[in-house]
């Protein structure tokens, strides 16, 4: 058992050190890459947990250990098994998240280009105390740009109705948050869920199935779903 936990991490670090150890990448280019992460993660001054945990101080941190963020079991297990975030492990995770932690709820297929990962990691280093010798960078912009009516955002959803409506979602999105080609939608902050669904409803996000499904849900129904999925027991 111990070996199976340790081996993947060991193998990854052997494989990756050459790529990332002494080349810090370009943090400015990394900021552009970070746009792909911004819909779920915040970093910089005032960063909070959103759909994903904030990424300040990620270097040297054991995986899955922010106290007030609910991780997938897989990531907690990986952290308990010894996974720490360093340039090498981040590089491996960013290349293919589910290859490193198969049950992660991070619905992101990965960054294929090594230079994108290198630059992104250089950017993220700017928000960690360790290692020192980090180039300064501005705090990131707000994570979710939207012009949604505050009245819509302040609606309190009925989780019981949400539970019934959710059965329409779980034909594709798995209730335990696993992602096998269709993103996880569980345990999102309600605000992010509501913003995303209204973006589909208003056809600002491009996906025909989601535009159709969200299109016929009213604001109360979206709030109900947000309330239900945000509180799901794992």
């Amino acid at each position: 058992m111990r070996l199976t936990k340790i081996l993947p991490v060991l193998a990854l670090s052997l494989f990756c050190t050459g790529a990332a150890a002494d080349d810090f990448g370009d943090p400015v280019a990394g900021e552009a890459v970070f746009k792909k992460c911004k819909s779920c993660h915040m970093v910089g001054e005032g960063a909070k947990h959103r759909i994903g945990p904030h990424l300040n101080g990620i270097f040297g941190r054991q995986a899955g250990t922010h106290e007030n963020f609910r991780y997938s079991k897989a990531l907690v297990r990986a952290g308990t098994g010894g996974l720490e975030w360093h340039a090498d492990t981040l590089d491996a995770f960013l290349e293919k998240p589910r290859a490193l932690a198969s049950g992660t709820r991070m619905s992101f297929s990965g960054l294929r280009k090594p230079e994108d990962r290198l630059n992104l990691i250089a950017y993220l280093r700017a928000f960690s105390d360790d290692p020192a010798n980090i180039p300064e960078a501005d705090p990131t912009a707000t994570p979710t740009d939207h012009d949604l009516d505050p009245a819509i955002l302040s609606l309190k959803g009925d989780p019981e109705y949400g539970e019934y409506l959710s059965s329409e979602c779980t034909t594709c999105h798995q209730a335990d948050g696993a992602d096998d080609g269709i993103p996880s939608i569980v345990l999102w902050p309600e605000e992010d869920f509501v913003v995303a669904m209204h973006a589909y409803k208003n056809k600002k996000r491009a996906h025909p199935v989601m535009q159709m499904m969200a299109g016929r849900l009213n604001a109360e129904e979206i709030a109900a779903l947000a309330a239900y999925f945000a509180a799901l027991e794992q």
């Binding site: 059965s167 779980t170 034909t171 594709c172 999105h173 798995q174 209730a175 335990d176 696993a178 992602d179 096998d180 080609g181 269709i182």
Partner: peptide, 14 residues
């Protein structure tokens, strides 16, 4: 296509 694979796992689990 990748989405259809996700759907397959989703619906059979559901």
């Amino acid at each position: 296509y990748e989405e259809s694979e996700g759907w397959y796992t989703g619906i059979t689990t559901d």
